[in-house]
Design a binder for these strands. Structure first.
Length: 341
DNA sequence: AAGGAGGGCAACCGCTCATTA
DNA sequence: GTAATGAGCGGTTGCCCTCCT
């Protein structure tokens, strides 16, 4: 059915930035008469604007309860968490952030958070590690470039930045490979292995077990931590914890800001010493929202995301119809094996 | 100092959904 | 049941400012 474009009936209506005079007219009118029909408001308020434009100006800028200024870390964390559940439902997200508008949140996401996640190798749409081949190719090529640089310039300082980039790339590549391996989808593993075998000097096996063609002295202590000879996953710095399983790290309620490379906080999340693959970051079963919801503290794996009340509220509000929720709910009701994404 | 590039943000566009006649 | 209308939402655009060369 649809509807005719707003304001189509009058091409003379003003568009573009609002002037202080127009703002004042709108504020005065609403203060005096309250919110009513946006369609008739412009005429009554003496504005040469369409109602839609007035509504937008009011809700996004002039409303008295608008909170302006930079987003706090807490707000950023809330946005990321809510986005992982709600997707691009900016108005829904905005309802959880008093004083923030959907437009403001949307802009903040697109200009800041999205880039941040991409840089971390996390798909901003799915909030899962990126496994697309383009991304892997970039990381792989970065590694090749760094390796060549080291061979050709042993006195190294010239290539310090390159090496730093390689370090980051290595972490991300490792992370992606682990995620692919962890999905229990043979096709993914094969394609990743084949891809690496053909285009990368490091074998998949080498990257996973720490015997890549990088010499030991080229590896930083952090890298060696991940790839120690016993195959155990030792304590890792927060960024490496995130690198190994950023999805779980994210789910645990991480503040992405803490993934800054300067952050030195440590987390002892990996208790297993047999399995070379990282164990998921744990939350106590009794605090897991899913366990509480389904009363399955005995079989469900450790799984910590948001607080229970927030989860319950979100699920009640957003009928659990997305594949995302189905994935989680199916898993918790059927599986006792480690969660894998 | 000038101008080009890129980022941030306000505003617009076009669509869908809900309501009403 | 259908069409018209109002309102809201998400995506996109374009302007302005800052930074870099």
């Amino acid at each position: 059915m649809g509807r005719s474009p707003c304001c189509a009936e009058d091409a003379n209506l003003k568009k573009g930035p609002w002037t202080p005079e127009e703002d004042q007219k709108l504020v005065d009118y609403i203060n005096k008469n309250g919110l009513g029909s946006w369609r008739t408001l412009p005429k009554l308020a003496g504005l040469n604007r369409c109602g839609k434009s007035c509504r937008l100006r009011w809700t996004n800028y002039l409303r008295p309860d608008i909170k302006r200024g930079k987003f706090s870390e807490e707000e950023e964390r809330v946005i990321i968490n809510l986005h992982s559940v709600l997707g691009n439902k900016w108005s829904r997200i905005a309802t959880h952030l008093p004083g923030r508008t959907d437009n403001e949140i949307k802009n903040f996401w697109n200009t800041h958070i999205r880039k941040k996640l991409l840089n971390m190798g996390i798909d901003p749409h799915t909030h899962k590690p990126r496994t697309d081949l383009d991304h892997l190719l970039n990381l792989s090529q970065l590694l090749c470039a760094a390796q060549l640089g080291n061979l050709m310039n042993p006195w190294d300082t010239v290539f310090k930045l390159q090496a730093d980039a390689a370090q980051l790339a290595k972490a991300q590549l490792l992370q992606n490979l682990m995620q692919i391996m962890n999905t229990n989808k043979p096709a993914n593993v094969e394609s990743a292995a084949g891809f690496l075998g053909s285009q990368n000097p490091y074998s998949l096996e080498g990257l996973l077990n720490g015997t890549s063609t990088l010499s030991a002295k080229e590896q930083t202590p952090q890298t060696q931590n991940i790839q120690n000879s016993a195959g155990a996953i030792p304590q890792a710095s927060s960024e490496y914890q995130a690198a190994e399983d950023p999805w779980a790290y994210f789910q645990s309620g991480v503040n992405y800001e803490s993934l800054d490379m300067n952050n030195q906080s440590f987390s002892n999340s990996f208790e297993q010493t047999e399995n070379p693959l990282p164990k998921l970051v744990s939350g106590s079963p009794e605090t897991s929202p899913i366990n509480q919801m389904e009363n399955k503290t005995d079989t469900a794996p450790d799984f910590s995301i948001y607080d229970y009340e927030a989860w319950e509220k979100l699920i009640m509000e957003d009928e659990a119809d997305s594949s995302y929720w189905k994935e989680i709910l199916d898993f918790t009701s059927s599986s006792s094996s480690p969660i894998s994404w």
